[in-house]
Design a protein around this nucleic acid. Structure first.
Lengths: 345, 345
DNA sequence: GGTTCATGCAAATTATTTTCTTGATACGTT
DNA sequence: AACGTATCAAGAAAATAATTTGCATGAACC
């Protein structure tokens, strides 16, 4: 049997998602005939066994289930609901137990799994278990109790979940473009205001100056405007706004774009800030996470900064990286300081 | 049925880990007879099926496998190695395929699974898949390639993994004590130097001042010493050091302790800083994570701060919390500002 | 030389999938 | 409107495959 994608819901790399329109809700435009075509696809899939399915898989089982819901039959909806509600049961149950609980026959369960894009029932369970670790928790806005262990678990889970969602919604191409811009900039201005975004701006500075880039961070609206006005087209302006509604940042972006200065935004997609910037690195997390736990959102933003900084590093020193790491390792091993400065990372 | 703990590896809540000493390596002191006892335990487990497994399980399958390695037979080690190395294969393979690859018979695989505390082979696979999402990546220090998608995945995975490991090593009792101290402090001094730890100090200030606590953060060694000298026994000193070897911070802690001022350290356990502080909140991540990716470590520290701040919040306003959240929600809904200030969180 | 233990074989059990069939629903035709 | 046809869901039963158990063997270690 072949190896499958890290992100749940497998599929063959060759086929691409287009071959399974009804399985990939974002692309499906209408209901089509299932059975025979389905079988062919399964056959296709099976014949593609050698192919690693590492790429192209964006959906996890849960999302697929929710998105497919409308297209499932009554029995299948019952199965989906049981799985969704009592995930722990589903992951440990046999097909017979699950079928029993859903009041359907085992074959119906098998068909259900297939419809969701899984090869078999056990494949389904694996996908489920895999996503489950992080995928399904955001349903509960509150921790189970305020006992320390529960609070800790709640926070950790939400943070992991934020990362999971970030990854899923990540616009890799945009990040790549942003990294290219940054790597080629003569000077970088990093803007962000308020505890959250200013931390991101600082972090950007922290990460990028170590790569030898010229960068300054500012959380002061007036300074931001002045800097935007003073910047040149060979510079880059990068700004962060969690809400996407930082009017001052929008102004700075607008000003910069009028002067043909590249602008990059870390923010919610379709927000004013996003629209004002040339390149947007979208970070879209469900509201709940934002409101109650600023940290999980912040962690997602930090991860974006990290990705960005790593890509810039690779762009600046494409070959030297491995050597650089060795040097760093030595450096770190012989230092006792608290701040482990990283040269090329 | 009910939902279960985030941390992988199931087990019944009732039993507690003590009933399976050989499955929880930290407690196992020597090799013992396996088979019969094992069977009893499995039986126990099975009879406890209705029980939620929310607590008591600290180990994930991978750690168990690594820790048990010494006590496995030749064939079993072969199986373990295959699983450890080619986890993707293992998670998708049938028992026959796995047995084939390890050159053993299927029954041996079943026995192997049981020894690891799983009920059956498929239970093992579920545990595997479950932990896999986060648990197994730190073996690869480098991303698969420097293609943006791989870099992103690598970073996200490492961040999730850092959170996973943090959670596993978390000293909940210590955090609780720290939260109590902070909640009752007349004044709090938050210390940390270098890009990483100073961010944590700032973050602590950010989170705690909103709860109405008096707090100041400093990254200046001289100031830290002076503040430590000026503090009173009703105050609290909290400091962060990623390496645990920030000598200045050790000095500040020592000074404070001589004056009977409570001290809290966020740092590596058993480090000089940890030893100098009264309460240590240990953050122990494998070296690899620290050296190459500062962010994943930072994210773990941020999570600790988050947990701490939440616990303090609950301590300060035990009943008012729910109401407070409602107010917040209103506030947030009607604000357009970027910095979503949280009152009671 | 006996005990313990790992391990494979084969049988038994169990789980899963396939095939076949039925019944329901929707659609088009007369 | 009534009928026939196509489509599809879904279960029963059969077939297949996977997993586990019981037992026997042989190696290693007292």
């Amino acid at each position: 049997m072949n190896r499958m994608a890290a992100i749940a819901c497998h599929g063959s790399g060759e086929m691409g998602t287009n071959d399974k329109p009804h399985l990939c809700p974002r692309q499906s435009t209408g209901a089509g005939g299932f059975d025979k075509i389905e079988m062919d696809r399964v056959a296709d899939y099976v014949s593609n066994v050698g192919e690693p399915a590492t790429k192209g898989r964006l959906m996890d089982i849960f999302t697929t289930m929710q998105d497919e819901r409308g297209r499932l039959s009554q029995s299948e909806i019952r199965i989906a609901d049981i799985v969704l509600n009592d995930f722990e049961f589903a992951v440990n149950a046999s097909i017979i137990e699950l079928a029993g609980k859903a009041d359907v026959s085992p074959p119906t369960v098998t068909r259900f799994c297939r419809r969701l894009g899984c090869e078999s029932f056990s494949d389904f369970k694996v996908q489920l278990a895999r996503t489950a670790y992080v995928g399904m928790r955001y349903l509960k806005p509150e921790p189970k109790s305020i006992a320390p262990a529960d609070v800790a678990q709640d926070i950790i889970t939400k943070a992991q979940n934020a990362l999971f969602l970030l990854h899923r919604g990540l616009d890799v191409a945009a990040i790549e473009r942003a990294a290219n811009r940054l790597a080629g900039a003569e000077m970088i201005y990093a803007f962000g205001s308020g505890g959250n975004s200013s931390m991101i701006a600082t972090e950007l500075q922290n990460r990028l100056f170590r790569l030898g880039l010229r960068i300054t961070a500012s959380s002061d609206h007036s300074m931001q405007l002045m800097m935007a006005a003073a910047a040149k087209p060979t510079d880059v302006l990068i700004g962060s706004s969690f809400s996407g509604r930082n009017a001052e940042l929008v102004r700075a972006f607008t000003l910069a774009r009028e002067a043909k200065i590249p602008t990059i935004a870390l923010t919610q997609s379709n927000s004013p800030v996003a629209q004002a910037a040339e390149i947007t690195l979208p970070v879209d997390l469900p509201e709940g996470d934002n409101i109650y736990r600023p940290t999980s959102t912040r962690i997602a933003y930090l991860a974006v900064v990290d990705i960005l900084a790593s890509l810039v590093a690779y762009r600046i020193q494409p070959q030297a990286t491995v050597t650089l790491r060795r040097i760093k390792q030595q450096l770190v091993a012989h230092r006792d300081g608290d701040d482990r400065q990283l040269l090329g990372d």
